[in-house]
Every structure is written in C-alpha cells, then in structure tokens.
Amino acid sequence: MGAMDDYQQWEESLLTTELPRWDQLPKFDLYMDQVVAFINTTLGKLEFEPVTASMINNYVKHKVVLAPVKKKYQSMQIADILVISLLKQNYSLDVIHSGINQVTKRNYPKQAYDHFIEMLEAGIREQQRPEMVGADQLNEKLLEVAVESIITGLKAKKLLKLMEREKA
C-alpha cells in the first residue's frame, strides 16, 4: 500500500471522529491525572500532541483556564482544555484566550463549545457547517477560520509524516 493510499485511509477514518458535546463531558469533577487521560483519549484519534499536567498548569497560570477548585476540574475547564488542545497547534495561547473570550462574550460557554465542535466535525466530514441562529457574523467567521486551520494542520502533518516515512 502506498503513502497516498495510507493518507486516504486516514482521511476516511477521520470521518468517524466524534468529539464530546458539553453534556457528554464528565458530570463529576476530575483530578489532573483524570483530565489528562480524558483529553488524550478524546483527541487520540486526531494524533495531536499529548496533553500533559504541566501544559494544563501553564494554561491555569496564564489564566486561560480557571484554576481548579480543591484540585478538581469541572466541565467548563475541561471544555476549555479541549478547545486549547485543538487550537494550540496553530495559535498562541494569547490568541486562543482572546478568541475564547470573544466567542463566549456573545454566547453561553455551553452553546459556544457545542457549536465549535459541531462546526469542526462538519468540516472534517466536508459537510456544510452549521450556523448558530442569531449569531454574530464575525463570531461565525472566527470559528470558521479556526476550524479550517485545525483541519488543514491535521492534514498537513499527516502528509508530512507519510512523506518522511516514504523517504526513509
């Protein structure tokens, strides 16, 4: 099987990607090691760099993620860490933080998170992306560009990996 066949097979496997919606996030608070395991399991199929406890501590230190309460993380913090993990390949922490603030300024975090995930999955499947009813056009464009950058980055990394393997 050639590298292009491998790539097409990988692309097909992406079509089954399902990321958790807000209501599918853990209902109970998680300790750091549980958060790390949840994030890495959730994003494993996408072949992102694994998240570490020190990365999460850095997000908290830079106030991109709220500090845990009694060393436990809640749904909101887990959603933020998932979004950061998806975007950090292409954007700085400051840009991600600013983007999260802009999007959640106009929508509740649950709605904004779910909409982002729905847009990402639609983009992966190359379907028309859903629009949030009554959404601000700039907000929608920001989400659209962010989603496109994630998908393009995933594809570029996979292609480079296959090309390096073929060259070796």
Rank of each mutant, 00 (worst) to 15 (best):
E18L: 08
I124E: 01
Y73M: 00
G44P: 07
D33S: 04
A53N: 12
D29S: 14
W22A: 10
N101R: 14
Q128K: 13
Y91H: 15
E12R: 15
E144K: 12
A67P: 13
E118N: 13
V60W: 06
L87F: 14
L14F: 04
P20Q: 08
A168I: 10
A67E: 10
R165I: 10
E47H: 07
L15H: 10
A156K: 12
G2K: 11
S149T: 15
V35K: 04
K45E: 06
Q74W: 06
N107Q: 11
H115Y: 07
I84K: 02
A168C: 05
K70Q: 09
E12V: 11
D6V: 09
E164K: 10
F28K: 15
P26Q: 01
G2S: 14
R21W: 09
I117V: 15
V51S: 07
D23N: 15
E12M: 15
D33P: 08
E47D: 10
V51W: 03
L93W: 07
S149P: 02
Q89W: 03
N40I: 01
R165N: 13
N57P: 06
A168K: 14
E144Y: 15
F28H: 12
Y113R: 11
V103P: 11
G44Y: 05
S75R: 15
E47A: 01
A37D: 12
I96D: 02
I124N: 01
M163P: 05
A168N: 13
T17G: 03
Q74D: 10
S13A: 12
F116N: 00
I117A: 05
L30H: 05
Q89A: 13
L30D: 06
R165V: 10
P20F: 11
N139M: 06
V64E: 02
G99F: 12
A79S: 14
V145L: 12
G153W: 05
F116A: 00
A156F: 08
S13K: 10
Q128Y: 11
E47C: 02
K161E: 14
I117Y: 09
E49I: 07
L87D: 03
S85H: 07
N57D: 08
G123Q: 05
E118L: 07
D29Q: 13
I81A: 06
V145P: 07
T42L: 01
K63F: 06
L19Q: 00
I39W: 04
K167Y: 14
P68W: 09
A37I: 01
M32S: 05
P109N: 01
L87S: 07
A67Y: 06
Y73S: 05
Y73T: 05
V36P: 03
M119I: 03
Y73L: 06
V64C: 04
I96N: 04
F48N: 02
V103A: 10
P50G: 04
A67C: 09
L43Q: 02
E148N: 14
Q137C: 05
